[in-house]
Design a protein around this nucleic acid. Structure first.
Lengths: 169, 169
DNA sequence: GCTGAAATCACACATTA
DNA sequence: TAATGTGTGATTTCAGC
């Protein structure tokens, strides 16, 4: 049963900052928000515990490094029974090459963003994880030529009133 | 002029760990890699300075929180001159709602992933940033019903030989 | 929000290969 | 000579008040 919690202005300012850089000392964040360092730290801990902050990670821009390639892969299943869809999603969650997986409406059922080292690795991936999976009717690949933007940052409105969100606990 | 650098096994193990959680104390990371804490920290700093680690951020899973919605937006430009494309990409980089922007081949020129609070905000965004931009011939929206997977983690092979990458400095 | 103890970070230097 | 490990002081985190 999901519980609810609200994010006040302080929480949202904090989230906006931490989504840019989570290595900033709490002392510095506290100064920017005009609060004390312990208060700042407590807020951060609460956001973590509530699951509002879902992960804290280092990001590698593999394209800036000239490492790897990307593919868009659209997939339609032979069987759209709930269990089959769950099973497909669970499998995609296990595949390291699958960066993103969306359930979509239209000609295909799923839209995937796949990261692989090279075209041969992509071929191997498709044969193993997609066409060899038993529940795929057909699929279609596209290859983006350039990633012009990629961010995980959600801009929270720092002026609006309290914002209610669902938490996991 | 890009310079090159290689990632050895230690670097790749470190990247695999930091991409999961960058809040782990260097002492703990060092133990896992069987190296000393200063060596571990030095490696991390070098990966940062070389730009291999492009960002260190907190992630907010807005869908788990029941906050916001996603749209796929395909756009084709009226003018595909290099300058027009640059200008479009620069504009998308400024728009907070645009999470991802890819240059693709096919019917459309760009594929965007857009995050907004609600459908009205999406309408406002499209009118302002897309159809009102002066260089868009036509566009098409799709709305994914579920995000079944989202990760920024690239799995580096910890067994392979030295891996050459491009660095910014 | 403040203070102090514990942990972590980050440096200079010695050591090894 | 370049990279790793050791020891130590400065910062930061974090609990109790």
């Amino acid at each position: 049963m999901p519980q609810y919690r609200t994010l006040d202005k302080l929480d949202r300012k904090l989230l906006n900052l931490l989504q840019k850089d989570n290595q900033t000392p709490t002392r510095v964040l506290a100064d920017k928000l005009h609060i004390s360092q312990p208060t700042c730290l407590r807020r951060i801990r609460e956001l973590r515990e509530a699951g509002v902050i879902s992960a804290e990670v280092a990001m590698v821009d593999s394209f800036a490094l000239g490492y790897g390639m990307l593919a868009f892969l659209e997939v339609s299943l032979t069987n759209q029974a709930d269990e089959c869809m769950r099973e497909f999603e669970a499998r995609m969650n296990k595949e390291a090459e699958v960066m993103q997986c969306y359930f979509v409406s239209g000609e295909y059922d799923y839209f995937l963003v796949v990261h692989v080292i090279d075209m041969d690795a992509y071929y191997q991936f498709v044969r193993r994880a997609i066409s060899g999976s038993g529940n795929v009717r057909h699929f279609h690949s596209r290859f983006p030529m350039k990633r012009a933007k990629f961010t995980t940052r959600i801009a929270f409105d720092e002026k609006a009133a309290e914002l209610p969100v669902r938490t996991g606990k």
